[in-house]
């Protein structure tokens, strides 16, 4: 699952599921409501049940 948060407090996070397009490759569509800096959190559940979280940043231009 993907979770997008803005850098500013008071902004609602956006959630989306990712689907497997091919082995090891996932795709998702998110409706990011505002330009600016977004922190994308990737919540992963591995086949053995372990959970992983990864974070990356991106800037959305208007």
């Amino acid at each position: 699952m993907l979770e997008a948060n803005m850098s500013h407090a008071g902004m609602v996070p956006v959630f989306a599921d990712a689907r497997e397009e091919e082995p090891g490759r996932y795709q998702s569509t998110m409706d990011l409501s505002m330009a600016g800096d977004w922190f994308i959190l990737v919540h992963v559940t591995l086949p053995d049940g372990r959970k992983l979280d990864r974070q990356f940043e991106m800037r959305l231009h208007p």
Partner: peptide, 13 residues
Amino acid sequence: QPMEMRGVMLGGG
């Protein structure tokens, strides 16, 4: 203007 919630350093992103 379109609001833009920035939070990174100059030239980043």
